[in-house]
């Protein structure tokens, strides 16, 4: 090997080693090892819940509602969640966006035919109610099909959202359980109110 060629071996080896190592790192995803980027809040997102009944429904409504609110406010779902959790008081725009988001979430679930029949919510609603036992018994005697026909779930949930004190709920996010309870209570209350109205009308 000539002296010139021999002299080039070490720099050539250095370049080859660098290309090999950096190439292997990049091929294995080295350039993409970055934190998850928040998805576009306006894009469709599959929302599921591990819970059944009112609790599961509530979770789906909250997750979809926050998504819609974030889309309205032009921020990510995660940024809105963190903002709401860190602020003392929500802004008017946030309150309005969350209320509209919850309403839209009810509509989306209805459009997807994903709302449970209202009869499936009745037992849970009655469980925590302070109705007298005769009214409770009368309601339980009503066949599910009658309840479902009389009480469209979408109407019940829309009433629940309208009656929900969104500002109070968002102000109390430090106590995360309070959020869940407040939304659940509103749903339960709405189911209960609709049912008692109908039963009293019947009686």
């Amino acid at each position: 090997m000539s002296a010139g060629l021999r002299a080039g071996v070490l720099p050539g080896l250095a370049l080859a080693l660098v290309a090999g190592v950096v190439g292997a790192q990049v091929a294995a995803g080295g350039g993409d090892f970055a934190p998850l980027r928040p998805a576009d809040a306006c894009a469709d997102r599959a929302v599921t819940s591990q819970a059944d009944g009112i609790e599961g429904l509530t979770e789906q409504l909250v997750l979809r509602g926050i998504d819609d609110a974030a889309c309205t406010l032009d921020v990510s779902r995660e940024a809105l969640t963190l903002e709401l959790a860190q602020q003392e008081e929500p802004t008017d725009a946030q309150v309005d966006a969350v209320r509209d988001g919850l309403r839209a979430a009810v509509g989306e679930l209805a459009d997807e035919d994903a709302l449970p029949p209202s009869s499936s919510l009745v037992d849970e609603a009655l469980e925590g109610s302070d109705l007298n036992r005769f009214v409770k018994g009368a309601i339980r005697l009503v066949p599910d099909s009658v309840v479902d026909d009389a009480l469209p779930t979408e109407d019940v949930l829309t009433r629940a959202v309208d009656e929900l004190d969104v500002r109070a709920v968002l102000s109390d996010l430090d106590d995360a359980e309070a959020l869940n309870e407040a939304v659940q209570d509103a749903v339960t209350q709405a189911v209960r109110d609709e049912l008692t109205d109908r039963v009293r009308n019947l009686v």
């Binding site: 021999r6 070490l10 080896l13 250095a14 080693l17 660098v18 950096v22 990049v26 995803g29």
Partner: peptide
């Protein structure tokens, strides 16, 4: 791999720079 001192230095700098790029891109 005997080479000239300047090329040895150049190879050293290339290796340090390449190693740091590699550390910047862990998969």
């Amino acid at each position: 791999l005997r080479t000239t001192p300047d090329l040895e230095l150049a190879a050293g700098c290339v290796l340090v720079a390449g190693g740091l790029v590699g550390l910047a891109l862990p998969p």
